Amino acid sequence: MVEDTVFEHLRAMPGNEWVSQIHSCKVSDPLQHPWGRSYRLVEWTMKHTPESSRRVVPAESTPLEIAQAVVSHVPGRRFCQDGNE
């Protein structure tokens, strides 16, 4: 599966200690808009954080390119699903 290969690449990247804190990583099948190019949605969670992070990558991205996108991610807005709202 793509997720397993992405995890292997993440673990092999030197100098990224926080990568060991990734709890889960999901990569969607390629999605196609009626316009523009197709993409994949990458979503990952950290071990001690309830929020998930998401990033869109081109559908033709390799597992290594997806792992590099996860590592280079800059957090933006956070959305929590805690059920209190």
Rank of each mutant, 00 (worst) to 15 (best):
L41I: 09
T5C: 04
L64S: 03
Y39D: 06
L31E: 07
S61Q: 08
G36H: 06
P75K: 06
E60T: 12
H48Q: 14
F7P: 13
V2F: 00
R55A: 02
P34M: 14
V27K: 03
H9S: 12
M1W: 01
T49C: 11
A59W: 09
L41Q: 06
E8M: 15
C25N: 08
I66L: 13
P34C: 06
M13L: 08
C25L: 06
A59C: 08
A59P: 04
S28T: 15
E60R: 02
G15I: 08
H73Y: 01
F7H: 03
H9M: 05
I22M: 02
M13I: 11
P50C: 12
Q32E: 10
R40I: 11
T62C: 07
R77V: 13
S28L: 05
Q32D: 10
L10H: 02
P50W: 04
Q32H: 14
R37M: 13
V71Y: 00
L41Y: 11
S24E: 07
R40M: 07
G15N: 13
I22T: 07
I22L: 01
Q21Y: 03
Q81Y: 03
L41H: 12
P58W: 05
K47V: 14
M46E: 10
R77D: 14
E85Y: 15
S52V: 02
S28N: 08
S28R: 04
F79Q: 09
P58K: 09
G15V: 05
H33E: 08
R55G: 02
A69H: 06
F79I: 15
P14A: 14
A59E: 05
P14Y: 10
S72D: 05
V42W: 01
C80E: 11
P75M: 03
C80A: 09
P50T: 05
A59M: 13
D4C: 08
Q81G: 07
R77K: 14
M46K: 06
C25F: 05
